[in-house]
Each structure stands twice: as C-alpha cells, then as structure tokens.
Computed example of a mutant assay.
Amino acid sequence: MKDPSISSSNMAVSTEVILNNQFNSEENPFAEYMWMENEEEFNRQVEEELWEEEFIEHCFQEMLEEEEQREWFIPSRDLPSQTVSQLQEQISLLVLDGDLHADADFDVVVNSSLNPNAKEFTPGIQKHVM
C-alpha cells in the first residue's frame, strides 16, 4: 500500500506541471508535448492508484465473504424450544409502565441520605485520604 502523503504531493506536482504547460502553450509550440517529460512519474502514479483500488476491492470482497460465512445466532433455531418459550414468558412478565413506580422512586429520592454534590465514583481508581 502506498503512502497517501507521497501520492498527494506527487499529484499536486503533476497537476501543476500540466496547468503550467497549458498556460505556456502560446509561448512554446511544443508545450502540449511537455507532459512527456514527466511521463514515467505519471505512469507510476496511475499504476499506484490502480494497485490501491484493486487492494481496496480485494479487501471489500474478503469482508463480504466473511460476512456471508458467519453464522448468525437465531434464537428460534439455535436455542432449544423450552428455552425460547421460557424467554418469551419472562419478557411478557416485564412491566414497562414507569408510572407505577414513579411515586416510590420519588420517595426514595426525597428520603435519601446521599450527597448529590459528591464526586462521581470511578471504579479502579483508588484515592484514599486519611
């Protein structure tokens, strides 16, 4: 793979040469053929770009093949039928209505002895001051 910084600087030089040659075409009768002076550099750049495009396409194809080969977890297929029914039963027992517990939560907040201005606890960082 090529270094993008090298490619962009070379491309800028080539573009600059081409633009300069276009403006100098009135002064120099051979100006339209001046690009041949840098033909090898231009060919190298084009070849690098083609290799990069081919590499990206190859990586993309590999990614698609990996995705097709991956077995996805499907509960109805991969779990025993008892487990699926148990999960459905547990899900049906969940209560999603927050209004039932709003009064209880408010009482807990009002009667709490926690300091709301305390620093946030970060696990793994121990700073004990005695």
Rank of each mutant, 00 (worst) to 15 (best):
K2H: 08
D3I: 05
D3Y: 02
I6K: 13
S7K: 03
S8M: 09
A12C: 00
V17K: 01
I18F: 10
N20E: 02
N21D: 08
F23N: 08
F23S: 13
E26P: 08
A31F: 02
E32L: 06
M34Q: 07
N43M: 09
R44F: 10
Q45F: 13
Q45P: 07
V46T: 06
E47F: 11
E49P: 00
E49F: 12
E52K: 12
E54D: 14
E54W: 14
I56L: 15
E57C: 06
H58T: 12
C59T: 07
Q61C: 07
Q61H: 08
L64W: 02
E68Y: 08
E68W: 05
R70D: 02
R70K: 11
E71Q: 14
E71N: 10
W72T: 08
W72R: 07
D78G: 05
D78Y: 03
L79M: 09
T83H: 06
Q88M: 08
E89C: 01
S92C: 02
L94S: 03
G98Y: 13
D99L: 08
L100K: 15
H101L: 14
D105A: 15
S113P: 08
N115G: 05
A118Q: 07
A118D: 04
K119C: 03
K119L: 06
E120M: 06
F121G: 00
G124R: 01
K127W: 04
